[in-house]
Structure formats: structure tokens, C-alpha cells
Amino acid sequence: MKRGWFLPIVATLGFGFLYAPIVSLIVFSFNESRLVTVWGGFSTRWYGELLNDGQMLAAAWISLKVATIAATLATVIGTLAAFVLTRFGKFRGKLLMTGMITAPLVMPEVITGLSLLLLFVSMEMLLGWPAGRGLTTVVIAHATFCAAYVAVIAQSRLRDMDESLEEAARDLGAGPVRVFFDITLPVITPALISGWLLAFTLSLDDLVVASFVSGPGASTLPMVIFSKVRLGVSPDVNALATIIIVIVAVAVTIAGVLLMRQSKTAR
């Protein structure tokens, strides 16, 4: 097929559109001036200010804790859901389960946040648990929508996987639990790692759901950033963004290499 000029130009523009704001974010984080858009010379001053911002650091620590626990929970639940949907054939509730792992992916966050908050409040009135809102409620909320993402990733990996391996193990007398832990789990591990990483970043990133279900003393990092950003641009947010982007770029590259190696060995 003849290659036209149209596609490369649009693709270049598209990638420029995707990356230009990120690049400018990084560039202006090294700006001396407080005015984010006027260049005042190179400086790492805002990184220093970030390290002295106690509220920001406390929020970052809370977010890291929440993200680690929520991503781990989400990976367990999501993997089980994906396994059940791909390996168990037909069962009652299958359609319901398929719906419940698709819907959270697109559900507007304000609905998820508000409905979970009302659930927690009602549960507290009926059962006395969870007592108040804070870390626990944010973890549950994040684990729920992250599990849906993990389930989608794990599902596509489980479907691509060569099922004859599992059959062979079963023919040799291994029980279902043993087949899962000795055959299935090692094969899908790279997908689960990238699922965990995705869940981790989604949890770290969430503002809306956390704002609804969080309580006093459990402000996550996005909540603190949002309250700062609402008042206008500030260079220390740029510095924070740069740090996050660097960490994410490294993590995604590792995950990408893992997945690529995985798909090569799978073929």
C-alpha cells in the first residue's frame, strides 16, 4: 500500500499534542521564577520547597500506603474474577459478574464515589463498621474499581494462554488448586505485575472517589494537589509532577519490557 503524507503528519501532531504539555510541565519545574510561564533561569528551588512541605509529604505517604494495599487487594480479586470468567464455563451470575467488571471502567467517578460513601455511612449505622471514614474506606473503594482493570488485563492474558498446558497437568493427576499455582499463575504473572502497577497508579491518581469516601486526617496526595491547583498554578506542583512522571516512565518501561518478553516466549 502506498504511504501518504496524511497519516504521518496527523500522527506526529497527535503525539505532539500528547507530550507537549508534559514536556512544558517538566521544563517549568526547573524555573527560578514563581511565574510558571516566564523563564527566569534554571533552578531546583521548587524541589527543595516540595521536600519541606509537610502537608504534601504526609499526603504522599498516605497515598502510597493506600495505593500499595488497594493494588494488592485488587490484584487478588481481579485475578480471581478473570479466572472464574475464563475457566469456569457457564455458571449462574456470570453475566452479572461480566457486567460488574466492565461497568466500573467507564462509570463516572462522581457516581462511584457518592454511592460508596452512602454505602459506608449506611453500613456504619447498621453494623457499626466501618467506624468513620478514612484509610480503610479509601482502600476498599480503590480496590473495587482497580480490581475491574486488573480483571480485564488478566482475562485477556488467560484467554490467550495455551490451555493445553493446564489440561496436561490435569491429565497427570494434578488437582485444580495445584494446576492454578503451578501452571496458570506463573504463565500470567507478567500480566498480573502490569495489572498491579496499573492499579497502583490508578489509586495514586484518584481524586474524585477519594474525596467522597475519605475522612479527616486521610487526605490523599491528589486531594492536596487539587486544593493547591484550584488557587492557580504553582511551581512546586510542577516539581511534584516531574517526580511522578519520571517514576511512572521508569515503571511503565519495565512493565512494557516484561510484557514484550512475555509475548515473545508465549509464541
Partner: peptide, 17 residues
């Protein structure tokens, strides 16, 4: 890649733009 970086910060980047 951009999808993995903070959604909030990517919206914030457009304010500067």
C-alpha cells in the same frame, strides 16, 4: 505512557498552556 501519569497533573499542565 501519558495515561499512567497523573490525570490531575495532566489537566493542570493545560492551565499553563
Amino acid at each position: 505512557l501519558p495515561f499512567w501519569t497523573s490525570f490531575l497533573l495532566r489537566v493542570y499542565a493545560w492551565i499553563g498552556f
